[in-house]
């Protein structure tokens, strides 16, 4: 987006504010105005493609959740990032863009599934990756990577096999690279291998 256009955008819509970005132009948009703004983006500014919908969990900060939308204009070949804070930290919600961009359908379902953001007006807001009865939203900051013990989705299989959805054995993980030095010497490894599935940590 050229400098002129961006100034226009912020100048024209008083509710927008500029957002720090290292790549494409980005704006903050309050969730109340999101639908109107995106409608204009699509129809007047020719951002005809919704590339991605995702969200950020800011953990202890408030507002805790921010929805992120990436738009692309196939005629102008420009990207634009729109961020919108969720007002409620406990039951976060955003307006659904499905009516404007059908691409939003699965993206919003994924964001709902993994982050627990409710998209108001979505025609079919149910989980897309985890199973329907799964009780958590795993990409939230307060969810451990290894998972939390829950019943297996199919009750009969769970009964036969006595298998539960168990926290994954981290074995000293998570397996992360230190990030400095030669790649060959900084392969992701466990930080502490003194414990494992059968031997508890610190024993």
């Amino acid at each position: 987006m050229s400098e002129k256009d961006t100034n226009q955008l912020i100048g024209r819509f008083k509710y927008l504010s500029e957002r720090d970005s290292v790549d494409h132009y980005a704006v903050n948009c309050p969730s109340d105005h999101l639908i109107d703004f995106c409608q204009i983006l699509r129809d007047e500014y020719l951002f005809d493609m919704l590339v991605d919908v995702t969200a950020i969990d800011w953990d202890v900060a408030s507002p805790r959740f921010t929805g992120i939308y990436h738009f692309y204009s196939t005629s102008k070949q420009l990207y634009l990032r729109v961020a919108s804070d969720c007002k409620d930290n406990i039951k976060p919600s955003l307006p659904s863009l499905v009516r404007l961009y059908s691409a939003a359908d699965w993206h919003e379902r994924e964001t709902y599934d993994l982050m627990g953001i409710h998209f108001d007006g979505h025609p079919n807001l149910k989980r897309i990756l985890m199973w329907d009865d799964y009780p958590y939203h795993p990409l939230r900051k307060d969810f451990p990577l290894a998972g939390i013990e829950t019943p297996l989705p199919a009750a009969d299989v769970a009964e036969q096999t006595k298998v539960k959805v168990a926290a994954a054995p981290m074995m000293g993980g998570p397996f992360v690279s230190s990030g400095d030095g030669k790649m060959s010497q900084t392969e992701p490894t466990a930080k502490d291998e003194s414990w494992n599935e059968s031997k508890a940590k610190g024993s």
Partner: peptide
């Protein structure tokens, strides 16, 4: 064994089932 996926979504080895 679940391989590199030590995560909430992955069964840690198909021999559990």
């Amino acid at each position: 064994s679940g391989g590199m996926y030590r995560s909430y979504a992955t069964l840690q080895g198909v021999d559990r089932i």
